[in-house]
């Protein structure tokens, strides 16, 4: 392996932090979903790195499942977002507010 495992972890950590930042700060539902995807991918990177580091292919096969789940999750999430957009005419989560 070219890069040491610790650096992989650092990159994945940075990516995760970026994703979390995006999900929390952006006021656009699509960007929030995107942030969540990035966090998911950061976790995948850790899996791949760990699988190389430990010479065990379980981690890599796990990532394949994560990709499949991410794809379905995005499709469902986008459908919800489209529906919400039709209802309210906006992507701003601050407008989805029936209680207040």
């Amino acid at each position: 392996m070219i890069a040491p495992f610790s650096e992989v972890l650092v990159v994945a950590g940075i990516l995760f932090a970026l994703g979390a930042f995006c999900a929390v700060v952006r006021r656009n539902l699509i960007m929030i979903v995107l942030g969540i995807e990035i966090m998911l991918n950061a976790a995948s990177i850790v899996f791949v790195g760990a699988s190389l580091h430990l010479s065990n292919l379980d981690g890599q096969s796990f990532v394949l499942f994560i990709l499949a789940v991410a794809a379905t999750e995005v499709s469902v999430g986008l459908a919800i977002i489209v529906y919400a957009f039709r209802r309210t005419g906006s992507f701003d989560p601050g407008n989805f507010n029936l209680l207040g």
């Binding site: 979390a20 999900a23 601050g94």
Partner: peptide, 17 residues
Amino acid sequence: VATLQTVMVQYRLLAIF
């Protein structure tokens, strides 16, 4: 109780993090 509901879903996300 409704005041606990703070419109923005992201605040809750932030709290979780």
